[in-house]
Nucleic acid binder design. Structure first.
Length: 580
RNA sequence: GUGCCCGUAGCUCAACUGGAUAGAGCACCAGCCUUCUAAGCUGGGGGUUACAGGUUCGAUUCCUGUCGGGCAUGCCA
């Protein structure tokens, strides 16, 4: 039978509250862990909350509450302190109990019911499949994957989704870029536009095409030039070029387009898979067009009177919903904008019945939020179900030296390169060492360091150390986790052991809080504290002592610790090495 | 110009949504291996939480303004 000290204290307080302030039963009773050990194991600010309502001295209220708190075998001391805090000191048995709970629950320890099975969708990365993922996408991937894990642990039914922008102008530009590179390989002489994709991977795709199909998609440079109207505006010029290419290639355009998409998407998927980032669904933008969902969404907006015509384009009146200007949904050339399909996409997400949808975007998209929310409301949907998380930028450093990156010139560091350089574990972990809304300086030298400066090694080392000790117990009467659960936990009595127990007991609450805040970094910080507690204990006390009962109790403790490390690592997507 | 994010120890960052004396790591100083992995531990100094007001029992947290940094402000995505 598992015992929850926090719930127990809450009950005691609730009963006391009923007799001190009978009308206030609906007040939320919060228990926090004091930063200072002298303030006990748990503290309640209930009296401070009541002071406001009852207009009475908080300290006096605290005294009255404390007097009414029933005696419990799990509580050693109840004390009023400070402005009116009620501090609780738990009996050792109330702290060590968690060891047994952890060993019994194993891989499930820490799972909670906050989400109560609600359906929640996390959409993340969703980079255009127009080139390799870069280090910024890596942060979104790491954050999104861990957040999804976290929400799942907190009791939500989570779906992970990648929105594939396989329609639209950017994909056309990629297809064009590939074809132009291919023409060059065929020997055609033409200038490669500066606003086409510059990366070498485009040339690679062109080579493949050339190797597989020879001259089949070749058209002369003259023929191409002949059907491209000149424009001083390089963007217009690019659009003209795309139109000309479609014209010349006919059916073949679709092949090249599809080929480029397939290649890039596969590259992206493999990259993410290798990074330990998995999706339940890859949702195609093109499918939104093919099934008529975009047109339907637009019709619905129009029917609701939120669309008007100006300068040959169709505009959504997003200013009516708090946006700073109205937005075009259909261009004067008849093509829908990205925004149009995104409206349809979000509508579709909500129609799939999720209780909550989370979009994880790069911080540069922040101006986009009001218009998406506006569109959902204009369609009569509940934009309260949408949460948008902005992930700030990443800059790479070699110690004090910044690694320069610019997407425009194609000089960006790819996620794959980063993973190869510092390893998946360090990548996943470093990305999570900051809150999402904090810009991240990623120190490559530190991530590669094989010493305690590197937090990921510090954590993994704790795990390896535990494994090493446990590996030496083969001869023990109690030598596996199930047996440890039978150990006499009353023998865990020194301060470090009890502190470690308290820390282990926090884990479920840490998960719940982190899930509520969409803050996977909190797990990383918790694990650092936990590892520190262990290293400290390990240096101060010998685990493999002669006394078998004592030894079993300590082994039970570190086996429980190992379990919590593993569960935490799993949420973060970091491996748990058995030796280092 | 306007909007969003940010400003905490010398450096990199936390702070349980308003709680007690603002905490870690790095760097610096002084220590700990004939005993379970020293990739570890112990101790020490270091702060007007950018600045100025306001809200209240109580503010790093909420509100207003100023300064500084990042991002955005496309019929790109």
């Amino acid at each position: 039978m598992s015992f929850n000290p926090q719930a127990h204290l809450r009950q005691l307080l609730s009963a006391a509250l009923a007799s001190v302030a009978p009308g206030q039963q609906d007040i939320a009773i919060l228990l926090e862990r004091p930063k200072q050990a002298s303030h006990g194991d748990f503290a309640s600010n209930l009296a401070l909350q009541l002071a406001k309502i009852l207009k009475a001295n908080p300290r006096e209220i605290a005294q009255r509450l404390a007097r009414e708190i029933a005696v419990s075998p799990w509580v050693d001391q109840v004390e009023v302190a400070g402005a009116g805090f009620i501090n609780f000191r738990l009996a050792p048995a109330a702290k060590t109990q968690v060891v047994r709970d952890i060993l019994e629950q194993g891989d499930a320890y820490g799972r909670g019911t906050l989400g109560s099975g609600q359906r929640i969708q996390v959409e993340f990365v969703s980079a255009n499949p127009t080139g390799p993922l870069h280090v910024g996408h890596g942060r979104s991937a790491s954050f999104g994957a861990s957040l999804a894990n976290l929400l799942s642990w907190a009791g939500y039914a989570v779906k992970r989704e990648y929105y594939v922008n396989d329609a639209g102008r950017q994909m056309d530009i990629l297809a064009l870029s590939t074809w132009l590179r291919y023409l060059a390989l065929c020997g055609e002489e033409l200038t490669f536009p500066p606003n086409c994709y510059q990366g070498d991977y485009v040339i690679d795709m062109a080579r493949q095409m050339h190797a597989a199909h020879g001259q089949r998609y070749r058209h002369s440079a003259e023929a191409l030039r002949a059907c491209v109207p000149q424009s001083a505006d390089i963007e217009v010029q690019l659009d003209n070029l795309i139109l000309a290419a479609k014209d010349l290639l006919g059916e073949d355009w679709a092949y090249i387009h599809q080929h480029a998409l397939t290649e890039q998407l596969a590259d992206c998927r493999t990259d993410l898979e290798e990074f330990g980032v998995h999706y339940d669904q890859w949702f195609s933008e093109r499918a939104l067009y093919d099934t008529g969902m975009v047109a339907q969404a637009m019709q619905r907006l129009e029917k609701n009177g939120h669309i008007y015509l100006q300068d040959g384009a169709k505009w959504f009146r997003s200013t009516a919903f708090g946006d700073e200007k109205d937005r075009v949904v259909q261009r004067d050339n008849g093509l829908y904008t990205y925004f149009a399909s995104d409206i349809a996409y979000h509508l579709n997400k909500l129609e799939r019945g999720f209780d909550k949808i989370i979009d994880i975007w790069g911080a540069d998209h922040h101006g986009y939020i009001p218009r998406v929310r506006g569109a959902l409301r204009a369609l009569g949907s509940d934009d309260g179900k949408l949460d948008v998380i902005l992930v700030q930028f990443v800059s790479l450093w070699h110690g004090k030296e910044k690694v320069s990156m610019s997407t425009r010139s194609g000089q960006f560091v790819t996620l794959r390169e980063l993973r190869a350089e510092v390893g998946n574990d360090a990548c996943r972990f470093f990305y999570l060492l900051r809150k999402a809304d904090q810009a991240l300086d990623f120190d490559l030298d530190l991530a590669k360091a094989q010493n305690s400066d590197n937090p990921v090694y510090y954590l993994q080392y704790a795990h390896a150390r535990v494994c090493s000790v446990l590996a030496q117990t083969a001869g023990d009467a109690l030598s596996n986790c199930a047996d440890y659960a039978a150990a006499d936990l009353a023998l865990l009595s020194n301060a470090r052991e009890l502190a470690l127990c308290s820390r282990l007991a926090e884990f479920p609450a840490v998960i719940e809080d982190a899930a509520r805040d969409y803050a996977p970094h909190a797990i990383a910080f918790y694990l650092k504290d936990l590892a520190a507690d262990f290293h400290s204990y390990y240096n101060a006390e010998r685990i493999l002592v002669e006394d078998t009962a004592q030894r079993s109790a300590r082994l039970a403790l570190i086996a429980a610790l190992r379990q919590v490390l593993r569960n935490g690592f799993r949420i973060l997507g970091v491996t748990a090495p058995e030796s280092m």
